[in-house]
């Protein structure tokens, strides 16, 4: 029997391996997500090569989806980039929150670590720690590297499949993202103190989308910041 102390002290390789096995259920979700993005990328006129390069260099699912969707809608590359980046502002806050993991590491590890930070492995790292297990930099990198591989393979396959498959809307796969965000939001619910910030966020984003000509990606960024501001001002530590 291992004691908790022994479990906590893991070598980088042990952390890396633990992350790979822990991330498997989430990787299945990412694969569905990736295949759905591949279908959308094909609609946006992207090849397998372009989709693979994009997945490797961007590695931010929801922003790739929003950007590709904007391109399909005929908004142009610049508007698509702005829409995608607006959604990625949260990554700034996620890597900012990892300062303890990055402090004192060689620059190449910082450069690699920030790129491999995504919603799923970042959240998994916090969940694993909440269970009392040691999960630091190499846990983050192990999960991130696994997800990057799954993301590239599934998105490229999605593009290939798109040629043989019907419109994503007809088979409901376009809804995969909506359902995923619902699941993630449920996991982020900490209690009644989240009600006011989220209500303000939904209210602002909804009102801007319905009542003004503001782009949806700006409406959601504004809503998110407004909700966070309410939490900062009115919540207690």
């Amino acid at each position: 029997m291992k004691t908790i102390q022994e479990t906590r002290r893991r070598t980088p390789l042990q952390e890396f391996r633990a992350a790979i096995s822990d991330i498997i259920p989430l990787a299945f979700g990412v694969a569905i997500y990736g295949a759905a993005f591949g279908l959308l990328a094909a609609q946006a006129g992207m090849s397998e090569l372009q989709t693979g390069v994009m997945g490797t260099l961007v590695f931010a699912g929801s922003s790739q989806i929003v950007a590709a969707e904007r391109l399909v809608a005929g908004a142009g590359a610049f508007a698509a980039i702005v829409a995608g980046l607006a959604l990625n502002l949260r990554l700034l806050l996620m890597t900012a929150s990892l300062r303890d993991e990055f402090t004192g590491r060689p620059i190449w590890q910082v450069l690699l670590g920030v790129h491999l930070t995504s919603d799923e492995n970042w959240a998994l790292m916090h969940a694993t720690r909440a269970k009392g297990m040691h999960a630091g930099y190499w846990y983050l990198v192990g999960g991130g590297a696994s997800l990057l591989l799954v993301w590239i393979v599934s998105t490229v396959l999605g593009v290939s499949f798109a040629k043989a498959l019907p419109d994503p809307r007809a088979v409901g796969i376009d809804f995969a993202f909506t359902a995923a965000f619902i699941a993630i939001l449920c996991n982020l619910w900490r209690g009644v103190e989240d009600f006011l910030p989220w209500a303000v966020s939904i209210g602002c984003a909804g009102a801007l989308t319905l009542l003004t000509p503001v782009e949806p990606s700006w409406a959601l960024a504004f809503g998110g910041v407004a909700g966070a501001a309410v939490a900062g001002i009115f919540q207690n530590d």
Binding site: I202, G206, L220
Partner: peptide, 22 residues
């Protein structure tokens, strides 16, 4: 710090609102 902690949930809530309105 509280605002940063609340931001992910707040952002995803806004995203869902925008998606479902459409």
């Amino acid at each position: 710090s509280r605002a940063l902690t609340a931001l992910p949930g707040s952002l995803i809530a806004a995203l869902l609102a925008v998606i479902l309105i459409q």
